[in-house]
Amino acid sequence: MKLITHNMLTSKCLKGVVTGYPLSINATNINITEVDYNPEFITRIIPKLDWEVLWRAADSIGHSDGLPQTIEPKFEENNEFLKKAHRVLLEVDIEEGNLVCPESGRRFPISKGIPNMLLTEAEVQ
């Protein structure tokens, strides 16, 4: 699971959970997979992100090196920055671990890079 995906996910599906965002990450195995650099895409996706959540998530798994905590106004002209954002968003890939609901502590396992966000039948009753 990439951090771009983590930035979009909530645990609102759980009963009684109000925002369920951001989920915290427990990673036991992280891969770095090479992804073609596409500055247009990164520029386009950054306004859709919650940057603070991204930075904290990257920091919590030890991949925030050189990543600024806030976005500068003309970030699209800063190629160095876009490359760093590209790496954190698309190349850091959590292979095994858990996503944890911030309100209830419910864990969602990530196996072979695929998060399992399913509830049990008891939880949807």
Partner: peptide
């Protein structure tokens, strides 16, 4: 490829 998720 971004990701796939198991979800309902």
């Amino acid at each position: 490829y971004l990701d796939v998720l198991v979800s309902d």
